[in-house]
Computed example of a mutant assay.
Amino acid sequence: MNKNYNACYYREFLCPSNCPYDCVVDCVTCRPVCSCDKPGAVCQDPRFIGGDGITFYFHGKKDRDFCLVSDENLHINAHFIGKRNPKMTRDFTWVQSIAIFFDSHRITVGALKTTTWDDSVDRLFVTFDGEPLLLPERQGASWESGATATSRTSVTRSADANSVVVEVEGKLRIAARVVPITQEDSRIHNYGVTSSDCLAHLDLGFRFDSLSGVVNGVLGQTYRAGYVSPVSVSAKMAVMGGEREFETSSLYAPDCKAARFVGSGGSGAAERVFLPSLKCESGIEGRGVVCKR
């Protein structure tokens, strides 16, 4: 629906088979792209695509909290839910909610516990500084922070239910969507989902506008200049370690060992990195994207 791209404007596309209900159109290449296949994505079990373009998994532990991003004036924690498979040494985990800290504010986005899934029933909750934001259930409904907020903040529904876009001016944009674990997924992967809980969780897409050279966190570290990923890119399922370094005492505590957050009272001494917007021949684009052959 962007009139600046005449070749794609008002055309209808079908999502790729591996994401039949959740994709976006790349206006440069005029083709649909899975939202979870772009840099900054945190989806599924949870599968990350870093700022360096490398895909990896970070399993964490169920019912624990981990810092995804930690910078001087931006910190993002995630609460993991999961299921234990007695035949494995790790939990199956998914991101159930996130808490975003900036200036002196906090936004929380999460999925409500759900038994039977219905796409038309909203199972998403959002709060700003602890107060719930009650958005009308229609696409385009939005909320904006008042004049007292240091950074202009908005929350907009990207669908009638279960999807929002959170934007903090000059800092970040997050697309969040509540999705369930289907019975078919559970059968294929042995998740053990029961009729009492479909393990509703978040699929997330992050875009960062400015980060410092000391940014850390499971995802944040991949945006540092000169960062070299420790995961094996040749592995069938590349796993990122560091649970102890990234675990926090709660969703609302920016206190992981890797924390860099000091809030609006920070000294600002760390060099800021204003991430350029790059485009790759593959069609992937965005701030902080690194094109690789």
Rank of each mutant, 00 (worst) to 15 (best):
K3I: 13
P276C: 06
A253L: 08
G286Q: 02
V231W: 07
D22E: 12
E137W: 08
C67V: 13
Q44C: 04
S154E: 01
D22S: 13
S145Q: 06
V178S: 04
S120R: 12
Y9I: 07
G241F: 01
S232T: 10
C23G: 10
K279S: 15
T108S: 09
P46I: 02
E285M: 12
V233Q: 13
S232M: 09
L251W: 10
L112A: 07
V239D: 05
D129C: 04
H75W: 02
L278M: 08
I81C: 07
G140S: 05
R244M: 08
S210N: 13
A253C: 08
E281H: 07
K279W: 09
R152P: 07
Q96T: 05
L14A: 14
Q221P: 00
G226D: 03
T194P: 02
V33W: 03
F125I: 01
H201K: 11
D103C: 05
I181S: 05
T108Q: 11
G60K: 07
F102C: 13
V69I: 15
V164A: 10
G205P: 08
A141M: 03
T108G: 07
S186Y: 15
I49P: 01
K279T: 15
K236E: 14
G265L: 13
E169Y: 08
G217R: 00
N216W: 00
V193A: 01
W94Y: 06
F58H: 02
A176T: 05
K257M: 09
A269H: 12
F92L: 10
S154Q: 03
K87N: 11
E137L: 12
D255N: 15
A235Q: 12
R224N: 05
R64C: 06
V155L: 14
P16E: 03
P39W: 13
A238G: 05
V164D: 10
I181V: 15
T115L: 01
C23I: 10
H59R: 12
Q221N: 03
V215P: 00
S196F: 07
E12A: 11
T153V: 15
S196E: 09
P132W: 10
N85Y: 06
L278C: 02
S282T: 15
A111M: 07
R187F: 09
L202W: 01
N190M: 07
L211E: 08
G130K: 10
G283Q: 02
I100S: 03
R293K: 11
M1T: 14
G192N: 02
F92G: 03
R138F: 13
E167I: 02
F274Y: 12
V165H: 01
G241E: 03
G265D: 06
F48P: 01
